[in-house]
């Protein structure tokens, strides 16, 4: 753009900012959609996560905390823990060990502040006949008295954190991307809810909030991350993020912690001494729909 254009643009911005601030000052305190008017206005002008400065992110975190306080009367600690150096996360599931108990599913729902009545669950455990690997013949509504059922095997499916993620390519507003540690994340404030990414994902790993997630205030997990489990609004897409708020601090993802049989193995793909690398080097591993070339960082094996 020309210099004159720049000047004009700047003047326009200052003018808009002036109007914004003026209105904010005028309408100061009364609640505005559960927020103060200033917060609502700042939310409206909030930038994409990757274009925000550190100060802007901190302000956004403050607004998120105040919004949750107003909505649920709960004090959350919303953080922005950065990725660790030289870490790329990988996951492996031993399907010989998985008994289909769904402990992981429900630990995930609690940990990630998922709506309790909505249909959103990040993990689906598929039940298949032994010897059958046709995913179309799988059932994730199985509900016997005891698992594992004789003659069946179980296959937990969640976001594969693809290294070449088709969902990221599909997003028209770049509200989803892959972080340096390999986790594909969503900026819920930037997502426009078009659901293109859901159509692009071959694993049915992305979920849309058709309604505002219903969270019992007592059960809200207060340990939150901007790109992770902070309470989400209606009309945005969300997905498994390997419990970004936990793993970046060295803790296990909630599903792994909940697994009673130790079928889930998580670790750093760049560390040659990690468990995940031992599994990849010593077990017959496979990935789902490998032929699509999405390079999932999520392996399955049996022994």
């Amino acid at each position: 753009m020309s210099k004159a254009g720049d000047k004009f643009d700047q003047a326009r911005r200052n003018f808009l900012r002036g109007i914004g601030l003026g209105t904010a000052a005028a309408v100061a305190q009364p609640a505005w959609g559960g927020q103060t008017f200033q917060d609502a206005l700042a939310d409206f002008f909030q930038k994409d996560y990757r274009r925000m400065s550190k100060e802007e992110i901190d302000e956004a975190l403050g607004r998120i905390e105040r919004r949750v306080k107003a909505q649920y009367d709960v004090d959350i600690d919303c953080q922005n823990t950065p990725p660790q150096e030289n870490v790329v996360y990988g996951y492996a599931i031993n399907i010989s060990r998985c008994i289909g108990c769904r402990y992981c599913v429900h630990a995930c729902v609690k940990e990630n502040n998922l709506g309790r009545d909505s249909q959103v669950q990040y993990i689906r455990v598929l039940e298949l006949d032994q010897g059958n690997f046709n995913l179309e013949q799988s059932d994730h509504y199985y509900d016997p008295e005891k698992v594992p059922v004789e003659g069946k095997h179980y296959l937990p499916v969640q976001c594969m954190q693809c290294d070449d993620p088709p969902c990221v390519k599909a997003c028209p507003v770049e509200a989803t991307w892959m972080e340096p540690d390999g986790i594909v994340v969503v900026d819920y404030d930037w997502c426009i809810g078009c659901r293109y990414c859901m159509a692009a994902c071959p694993y049915w790993a992305r979920h849309f909030n058709w309604t505002t997630p219903e969270l019992p205030a007592k059960e809200i997990n207060t340990n939150c991350h901007y790109l992770g489990n902070r309470p989400r609004p209606r009309g945005v897409v969300e997905k498994c993020h390997f419990c970004i708020h936990r793993v970046r601090k060295g803790q296990q993802p909630a599903c792994m912690e909940a697994c009673p049989t130790g079928a889930r193995i998580f670790g750093n793909l760049l560390d040659p001494d990690s468990e995940i690398r031992y599994v990849l080097a010593n077990k017959q591993v496979f990935r789902l729909k490998e032929d699509l070339g999405t390079e999932p960082k999520f392996w399955y094996f049996s022994d």
Partner: peptide
Amino acid sequence: IEPRAPKPAPPVRAGLEREPGA
């Protein structure tokens, strides 16, 4: 490892019903 009761199945999408058979 002893078999155990599974946690509840995921809800069926609002407005839909489960067909009686996978």
